[in-house]
Simulated scan of single mutants.
Amino acid sequence: MAPEALAVLHSACFTTPRPWSAAEFSELLASAPCFLLSEPEAFLLGRVIADEAELLTLAVAPGARRQGKAARLVTGFAAEARARGASAAFLEVAASNAPARALYAAAGWTEAGRRKRYYHAPDGTTEDALVLVLTL
Protein backbone atom coordinates (compact mmCIF):
# COMPACT_ATOMS: atom_id res chain seq x y z
CA MET A 1 0.00 0.00 0.00
CA ALA A 2 1.19 3.48 -0.83
CA PRO A 3 1.58 6.06 1.96
CA GLU A 4 -1.44 7.96 0.65
CA ALA A 5 -3.66 4.86 0.87
CA LEU A 6 -2.35 4.11 4.35
CA ALA A 7 -3.20 7.65 5.48
CA VAL A 8 -6.73 7.43 4.05
CA LEU A 9 -7.40 4.10 5.77
CA HIS A 10 -5.82 5.31 9.02
CA SER A 11 -8.05 8.40 9.03
CA ALA A 12 -11.13 6.18 8.54
CA CYS A 13 -10.15 4.26 11.68
CA PHE A 14 -8.79 6.86 14.11
CA THR A 15 -9.58 10.20 15.62
CA THR A 16 -7.79 9.43 18.91
CA PRO A 17 -4.93 9.09 18.53
CA ARG A 18 -4.97 11.42 15.56
CA PRO A 19 -4.62 9.81 12.14
CA TRP A 20 -1.17 9.83 10.57
CA SER A 21 -0.42 11.70 7.34
CA ALA A 22 0.92 10.26 4.11
CA ALA A 23 4.21 12.06 4.82
CA GLU A 24 4.48 10.36 8.22
CA PHE A 25 3.82 6.96 6.68
CA SER A 26 6.34 7.66 3.93
CA GLU A 27 9.00 8.58 6.47
CA LEU A 28 8.36 5.47 8.55
CA LEU A 29 8.37 3.16 5.53
CA ALA A 30 11.71 4.59 4.42
CA SER A 31 13.21 3.58 7.76
CA ALA A 32 15.01 0.21 7.70
CA PRO A 33 13.61 -1.03 11.04
CA CYS A 34 9.99 -0.60 9.86
CA PHE A 35 7.87 -3.14 8.04
CA LEU A 36 4.37 -3.14 6.63
CA LEU A 37 1.94 -6.05 6.54
CA SER A 38 -1.31 -5.65 4.67
CA GLU A 39 -4.52 -7.27 3.56
CA PRO A 40 -7.29 -5.69 1.52
CA GLU A 41 -8.68 -2.82 3.61
CA ALA A 42 -6.25 -3.49 6.47
CA PHE A 43 -2.63 -2.94 7.43
CA LEU A 44 -0.18 -3.17 10.30
CA LEU A 45 3.01 -1.15 10.65
CA GLY A 46 5.75 -2.43 12.95
CA ARG A 47 9.43 -2.04 13.57
CA VAL A 48 12.28 -3.94 15.15
CA ILE A 49 15.23 -2.26 16.82
CA ALA A 50 17.85 -4.51 18.40
CA ASP A 51 15.87 -7.32 20.04
CA GLU A 52 12.65 -5.35 20.62
CA ALA A 53 9.68 -5.00 18.31
CA GLU A 54 6.99 -2.37 18.41
CA LEU A 55 3.58 -2.63 16.83
CA LEU A 56 3.15 0.97 15.73
CA THR A 57 -0.37 0.90 14.33
CA LEU A 58 -3.04 -1.47 13.09
CA ALA A 59 -5.98 -0.33 10.98
CA VAL A 60 -8.91 -2.24 9.52
CA ALA A 61 -11.57 -0.39 7.54
CA PRO A 62 -14.80 -0.22 9.55
CA GLY A 63 -16.69 -2.22 6.92
CA ALA A 64 -14.02 -4.93 6.83
CA ARG A 65 -13.88 -5.70 10.54
CA ARG A 66 -14.74 -9.01 12.23
CA GLN A 67 -13.34 -11.01 9.31
CA GLY A 68 -10.08 -12.12 10.97
CA LYS A 69 -7.88 -9.58 9.18
CA ALA A 70 -6.55 -7.98 12.35
CA ALA A 71 -5.83 -11.36 13.95
CA ARG A 72 -3.90 -12.49 10.87
CA LEU A 73 -1.91 -9.25 10.80
CA VAL A 74 -1.06 -9.51 14.51
CA THR A 75 0.08 -13.11 14.01
CA GLY A 76 2.12 -12.02 11.00
CA PHE A 77 3.65 -9.21 13.04
CA ALA A 78 4.90 -11.66 15.67
CA ALA A 79 6.39 -13.93 13.00
CA GLU A 80 8.11 -11.05 11.18
CA ALA A 81 9.42 -9.55 14.41
CA ARG A 82 10.83 -12.93 15.44
CA ALA A 83 12.43 -13.35 12.01
CA ARG A 84 14.07 -9.94 12.42
CA GLY A 85 15.60 -10.97 15.75
CA ALA A 86 13.15 -9.59 18.29
CA SER A 87 12.59 -11.48 21.53
CA ALA A 88 9.85 -9.19 22.89
CA ALA A 89 7.23 -6.89 21.39
CA PHE A 90 5.40 -3.85 22.74
CA LEU A 91 2.41 -1.73 21.80
CA GLU A 92 0.14 0.94 23.22
CA VAL A 93 -3.64 0.72 23.07
CA ALA A 94 -6.32 3.06 24.36
CA ALA A 95 -7.67 1.77 27.65
CA SER A 96 -11.24 2.11 26.34
CA ASN A 97 -10.60 0.18 23.11
CA ALA A 98 -12.20 -3.09 24.21
CA PRO A 99 -12.18 -4.77 20.76
CA ALA A 100 -8.44 -4.12 20.30
CA ARG A 101 -7.67 -5.21 23.85
CA ALA A 102 -9.58 -8.47 23.27
CA LEU A 103 -7.72 -9.05 20.00
CA TYR A 104 -4.34 -8.59 21.65
CA ALA A 105 -5.24 -10.69 24.69
CA ALA A 106 -6.31 -13.55 22.41
CA ALA A 107 -2.89 -13.31 20.72
CA GLY A 108 -1.06 -13.60 24.06
CA TRP A 109 -0.29 -9.93 24.78
CA THR A 110 -0.35 -8.92 28.46
CA GLU A 111 -0.53 -5.58 30.22
CA ALA A 112 2.83 -4.24 31.36
CA GLY A 113 1.92 -0.69 32.31
CA ARG A 114 -0.29 2.34 31.88
CA ARG A 115 0.50 5.78 30.49
CA LYS A 116 -1.86 8.26 32.11
CA ARG A 117 -3.53 10.80 29.80
CA TYR A 118 -1.40 9.58 26.87
CA TYR A 119 -3.93 10.13 24.08
CA HIS A 120 -5.39 13.56 23.38
CA ALA A 121 -8.79 13.68 21.66
CA PRO A 122 -9.86 16.52 19.36
CA ASP A 123 -12.33 17.70 22.03
CA GLY A 124 -9.48 18.18 24.52
CA THR A 125 -10.14 15.11 26.63
CA THR A 126 -7.39 12.64 27.39
CA GLU A 127 -7.26 8.89 27.71
CA ASP A 128 -4.85 6.44 29.24
CA ALA A 129 -2.80 4.09 27.08
CA LEU A 130 -2.13 0.55 28.17
CA VAL A 131 1.33 -0.76 27.37
CA LEU A 132 1.12 -4.40 26.29
CA VAL A 133 3.98 -6.85 25.89
CA LEU A 134 4.37 -10.12 24.03
CA THR A 135 7.26 -12.51 24.54
CA LEU A 136 8.41 -13.79 21.18
Rank of each mutant, 00 (worst) to 15 (best):
I49N: 03
A83G: 14
F43N: 06
Q67V: 02
G76S: 13
K69C: 01
E41H: 12
A53Y: 06
K69S: 01
A71D: 05
P62N: 09
L56A: 04
L44A: 12
L56Y: 03
R65Y: 03
C34I: 00
K69R: 12
K69V: 01
L73D: 05
A79D: 15
R84H: 11
R72V: 05
P33H: 06
I49S: 08
L44I: 00
L73I: 04
E54W: 01
A83N: 13
D51C: 06
E52Y: 07
L73V: 01
R84T: 03
V48M: 11
L73S: 04
A50S: 12
A81E: 03
L55M: 12
A81H: 02
V60I: 11
A71F: 00
E41C: 09
F77N: 10
R65T: 09
A61Q: 06
F43L: 02
G63V: 10
E54R: 08
A71G: 11
T57A: 08
V60K: 14
L55A: 07
Q67C: 07
R66V: 03
L36G: 07
P62C: 04
E41Q: 14
G63T: 13
L44D: 04
R65H: 10
A59K: 11
A70C: 09
P40N: 11
L45N: 11
P33R: 04
F35A: 03
I49T: 09
R47I: 02
F35D: 01
T75I: 09
R72L: 11
R66F: 06
G68W: 03
A53Q: 13
G63S: 15
